[in-house]
Amino acid sequence: MVKIGNLEIGEFPLLLAPMEDVSDPPFRAVCKENGADLMYTEFISSEGLIRDAAKSVEKLDIYDYERPIGIQIFGDKIDSMRQAAAIAEEANPEIIDINYGCPVKKVACKGAGAGILLDIPKMQEMTAEIVKAVNKPVTVKTRLGWDDSTIRIVEVAKRLQDVGIQALTIHGRTRKQMYKGEADWTKIAEVKNHPDIHIPIFGNGDIDSPEKALEYKEKYGIDGIMIGRAAIGYPWIFNEIKHFMATGEHLDKPTLTERVAVAKKHLEFSVEWKGELKGIFEMRRHYTNYFKGIPDFKPYRTRLVESASFEELKSILDEIPEVFQEAIIA
Score class of each variant (00 low, 15 high):
182 E>C: 11
182 E>A: 13
286 H>Q: 05
295 P>F: 07
166 Q>L: 04
214 L>I: 08
191 V>G: 08
83 Q>A: 10
324 F>M: 07
277 L>W: 07
268 E>M: 09
99 N>L: 04
23 S>N: 02
12 F>Y: 15
187 K>D: 13
319 E>I: 04
142 T>V: 07
2 V>A: 12
92 N>I: 06
292 K>G: 05
88 A>S: 03
296 D>A: 13
64 D>W: 01
177 Q>F: 06
223 D>M: 03
234 Y>R: 12
314 K>L: 15
253 K>R: 15
239 N>A: 05
237 I>T: 12
37 D>P: 09
64 D>I: 01
241 I>D: 12
277 L>G: 03
193 N>P: 11
189 A>I: 02
330 A>M: 15
168 L>P: 00
145 G>Q: 12
219 K>N: 06
89 E>M: 08
58 E>T: 13
235 P>L: 03
23 S>R: 03
144 L>Q: 12
83 Q>W: 08
37 D>W: 05
135 N>C: 06
330 A>H: 15
27 F>R: 00
314 K>M: 14
245 M>E: 14
157 A>H: 01
79 D>L: 07
65 Y>D: 08
10 G>I: 08
70 G>H: 04
253 K>F: 12
99 N>V: 03
132 K>N: 07
2 V>P: 01
88 A>R: 00
283 M>I: 07
327 A>L: 04
324 F>K: 09
269 F>N: 09
27 F>I: 00
30 V>A: 04
140 V>H: 02
212 K>R: 15
148 D>N: 08
258 E>N: 10
310 F>Q: 12
169 T>M: 03
90 E>H: 12
306 E>G: 14
270 S>A: 13
29 A>W: 11
310 F>Y: 15
121 P>E: 15
28 R>H: 05
202 F>L: 09
182 E>D: 11
137 P>K: 03
162 D>A: 15
163 V>C: 07
192 K>H: 07
106 K>M: 12
210 P>K: 09
6 N>D: 12
259 R>F: 00
304 L>R: 00
2 V>G: 10
319 E>R: 05
96 I>H: 08
110 K>W: 03
46 S>L: 04
325 Q>W: 01
101 G>L: 10
136 K>D: 13
151 I>V: 15
327 A>S: 13
290 Y>V: 14
209 S>K: 13
154 V>K: 13
250 H>R: 12
82 R>Q: 11
251 L>K: 08
67 R>T: 06
296 D>V: 10
30 V>N: 01
54 A>G: 06
109 C>N: 11
111 G>Y: 11
102 C>A: 02
222 I>Y: 04
192 K>M: 04
307 S>W: 13
44 I>S: 07
233 G>N: 06
184 D>G: 09
67 R>E: 06
134 V>N: 11
95 I>W: 02
271 V>W: 10
12 F>V: 14
86 A>H: 10
201 I>K: 03
116 I>R: 09
206 D>N: 14
147 D>W: 10
18 P>R: 00
252 D>W: 02
100 Y>F: 04
314 K>N: 15
62 I>P: 01
313 L>I: 12
39 M>I: 12
312 E>Q: 13
50 I>G: 07
194 H>Q: 09
93 P>S: 09
32 K>E: 08
269 F>A: 10
275 G>S: 06
79 D>W: 05
38 L>R: 00
173 R>Q: 06
187 K>G: 14
164 G>I: 03
3 K>C: 09
67 R>W: 13
